[in-house]
Amino acid sequence: MSKSIPVLILCGGKGTRLREETEFRPKPIIQVGDRPIIWHIMKTYSHYGYKNFMLCLGYKGEVIREYFYNYDWNHNDIVLDLGSKEVRKVGNGNDEADWKIWMIDTGQETMTGGRLKRMAPYLRQMDSDIFMATYGDGVCNVNIDELVKFHHSHGKLATVTAVRPPSRFGELVIEDAAVNVFKEKPQTSEGWINGGYFVMHRKVLDLIEGDDTVFEATPLKTLAALGELVVYQHNGFWQCMDTYRELEHLNKLCANGRGAWQVWNHLDR
């Protein structure tokens, strides 16, 4: 059964550090194994029952629209009647038939905070005051059920998942499970960093001014200063796809059957 909390995925960036691929397609649609990385991200949430996805589109968003619109055609065995043009799926179909995917244009130049802010009218249509959000270029084997449970347990406005990959991401200074300082992309960093996979109350959107707001700057810093940003520390697998080397690494893990983020293929959670 699908759970009511919607999942926002930021898909609008230009991915300039992966120019080899993003010149032709948006980064979330770049394939890892036999599916785009955004599919892997969505599949993780779906594994835990969260199947209401809201994609914040921007750069080459039409490619993402076309991929999902033609999903059945590309990923099922079909019978095509050339005369009537009737298409019929055969076989077992796919496990994604119950996904609901909102594909919303949030602008070509909009920053991460602005993209979230633009989703406010759609979030108001949801049954839940809580929503989840992540980036469209990072895979993780975080237990989504435990993450949501943790968020509800502390009563604060926002939870961010902290991970331990190499530096160059947003550094979290943590004390007693609370985020005291949020530093985005320091020159050097050790310890925990921002891995995305947020759980937030809709009130967080009130801290975002508009399209030019970088979510990782003022909004997250304000939440930390107010004591409303709490961290969920994830010691497991996390990997972003910022560079071609990282793309190759993820594909190698898939080829070797070592995709630790592919929790849907595991017998246990």
Rank of each mutant, 00 (worst) to 15 (best):
Q262Y: 10
L157M: 15
N141E: 06
T243F: 01
T218W: 15
V63I: 14
L123D: 04
Y67K: 02
E23D: 14
E175Q: 10
G113H: 09
G236I: 00
A133L: 15
Q31D: 12
F215T: 06
R88I: 11
L267H: 12
T106S: 08
L18I: 06
E190W: 13
R25G: 13
T213N: 07
R25L: 08
T44F: 04
S128P: 13
Q233F: 07
G91K: 01
L8S: 02
L55R: 05
Q108C: 14
W238T: 12
T22W: 00
S167Y: 13
V179N: 05
H152P: 12
V199I: 11
A224P: 07
I78W: 05
L247A: 11
S46C: 05
V163W: 00
T222M: 08
I144D: 02
W99N: 02
I38L: 04
W261L: 03
N256I: 09
A225P: 12
V32W: 00
L205C: 02
F237W: 14
D206L: 06
G259R: 05
N94R: 13
I174H: 03
V263T: 08
D129M: 10
C11I: 06
K51N: 04
E62M: 06
E96W: 09
K100F: 08
K60H: 04
T243R: 01
W39M: 08
E248R: 15
V87I: 07
A120H: 12
P219C: 05
I104W: 04
K100N: 10
D211W: 07
H249D: 14
G12E: 04
P219V: 01
D95N: 11
E20S: 09
I64W: 10
V163C: 01
N52V: 13
Q187H: 15
G170S: 06
D81Y: 09
L223K: 02
F237L: 03
I193M: 12
Y197M: 08
A162H: 02
H249P: 10
V231L: 13
L123Y: 00
G259L: 11
E228W: 00
N76I: 03
H151C: 12
